[in-house]
Amino acid sequence: MSAGEMIEVVLPGKVEPEGLQVRQGAVPAPGPGQVVVRMEATGVSFAEQQMRRGRYYDQPPFPFVPGYDLVGTVLTAGDGVAPSLVGTRVAALLKVGGWASHVVVDAADVVPVPDGIGAAQAETLVINGITAWQMLHRQARVRAGQTVLVHGANGGVGSVLVQLARAAGADVIGTASARHHDALRERGVTPVDYRTEDIPARVRRLAPGGVDAVFDHVGGRSIVDSWGLLAPGGTLVSYGTASTRDDEGSKQWPVLKLLGRVWLWNALPNRRHAYFYNVWAGRALSKDRFRARLRADLTEVFEALRRGDITAQIAAELPLTQAAEALRLAESGTVAGKVVLHA
């Protein structure tokens, strides 16, 4: 690839991972207020797994370039952007477009990556770190001495969430398959095997009075069980519908059903609370406020990494041209952490 060329991975429709298309083109030019970021690391999130099935609730029409987030170096800057930004390593939250060697981003949407943090390390903590930090500290407001339950404790978000919760002084129960239990114990997490154990019964034995917070990305029956495990004053944070990934039918219905449950539970005369977390919430109302909060929270996550409160869990690194293999690996359920793509 020459200096003036870019490559991008296109999702043409509902396809198996091998149906992804690699396309070449010219490096884009930034418009006013924009920068071109030379991608150094992007990732495979659960969102892309849903998107290739047409199951992500607000994905764009096919074809499009997936890629929820990225880390890279600012290559060029458009009018109105400080020239000093060129050459800076930054992170950006995109929703789509990150699976490309060069990406145009609004300069106001990039967050500097501190010195000493590698691109792949930082990439594991963009969408996953923001999600974990905001759910833990902005919604559940977990405090030292509390007990929390994290579903999918070995996953991209879950692995960050359990570490942040432990750093906050909470006791953590985490669901995962047996192969990940030793790693969870090393992090001070009490593991529960979601494949072989009765999760509600096991959690009630571990926390007879209920748990102070549950973080649930599964949806379906799991969300009802999660609500029932809360202690008085506890908080349920739902942030996905993984159980419906392979379903047919409306992609909006599982989310609408979740929102309906959350509304109903909060309307009941009880001291428990339920939230449906969406990282993009509030952006339409105030883009400036959204950006400021994103920058502040991602900076906190990067500082937690530098302190050693959390580690960057890289499941595998593959070149962008092997996005199909990366997506297949991420969907296999055999890895812990995040699968990272590099240019």
Results as ranks from 00 to 15, higher is better:
Ala77Ser: 14
Val44Leu: 08
Val71Pro: 14
Gly43Leu: 03
Ala29Met: 13
Leu20Trp: 05
Gln34Met: 06
Pro63Leu: 08
Gln24Ile: 06
Pro28Leu: 04
Gly4Lys: 06
Glu18Ala: 13
Val9Glu: 05
Arg52Met: 07
Arg52Ser: 00
Pro30His: 08
Pro32Gln: 03
Val22Thr: 15
Arg38Ala: 14
Arg38Phe: 01
Val81Tyr: 07
Val22Trp: 03
Gln21Cys: 08
Tyr68Phe: 15
Met51Phe: 04
Val74Gly: 09
Ala41His: 12
Leu11Glu: 05
Lys14Ile: 10
Gly4Gln: 13
Glu8Cys: 03
Pro32Trp: 01
Gly78Arg: 04
Glu5Val: 03
Val15Arg: 02
Glu5Gln: 14
Val15Ile: 14
Val81Lys: 12
Pro28Arg: 08
Leu70Cys: 12
Glu40Arg: 15
Ser45Ile: 02
Glu48Pro: 10
Glu48Ile: 00
Val15Glu: 06
Gln34Arg: 10
Gly43Tyr: 01
Val37Thr: 08
Val27Arg: 14
Gln49His: 09
Val81His: 11
Glu8Lys: 00
Phe46Pro: 04
Thr73Glu: 15
Val9Lys: 00
Tyr57Glu: 05
Tyr57His: 09
Phe46Gly: 03
Ala41Met: 12
Pro17His: 07
Gly4Glu: 15
Gly72Val: 07
Pro30Phe: 06
Ala47Gly: 14
Gln24Glu: 15
Tyr56Ser: 02
Gly78Leu: 10
Gly19Thr: 13
Val22Cys: 10
Thr73His: 12
Arg53Ile: 00
Val74Tyr: 02
Asp69Cys: 05
Leu20Asn: 12
Arg53His: 08
Glu5Lys: 12
Val44Ala: 04
Asp69Gly: 04
Gly43Cys: 11
Glu18Phe: 01
Gln49Thr: 13
Gly19Asp: 12
Leu20Met: 13
Glu18Ile: 04
Gly25Cys: 14
Gln21Arg: 13
Gly25Ile: 11
Pro32Ala: 07
Val35Ser: 10
Glu16Thr: 09
Gln24Asn: 12
Arg23Trp: 13
Pro63Arg: 02
Glu48Val: 01
Val37Asp: 10
Thr42Lys: 02
Gly31Lys: 08
Glu16Arg: 09
Phe46Ile: 01
Met39Arg: 06
Gly4Pro: 11
Ala3Ser: 14
Ser45Glu: 15
Ala47Phe: 08
Gly67Ile: 02
Gly25Thr: 14
Val65Lys: 00
Gly4Ala: 11
Val10Phe: 03
Ile7Cys: 11
Gly4Tyr: 09
Val35Leu: 03
Glu8Gly: 05
Glu5Thr: 10
Gly13Tyr: 00
Glu5His: 11
Gln24Cys: 11
Phe46Asp: 01
Arg52Val: 01
Met6Asn: 08
Glu5Ala: 13
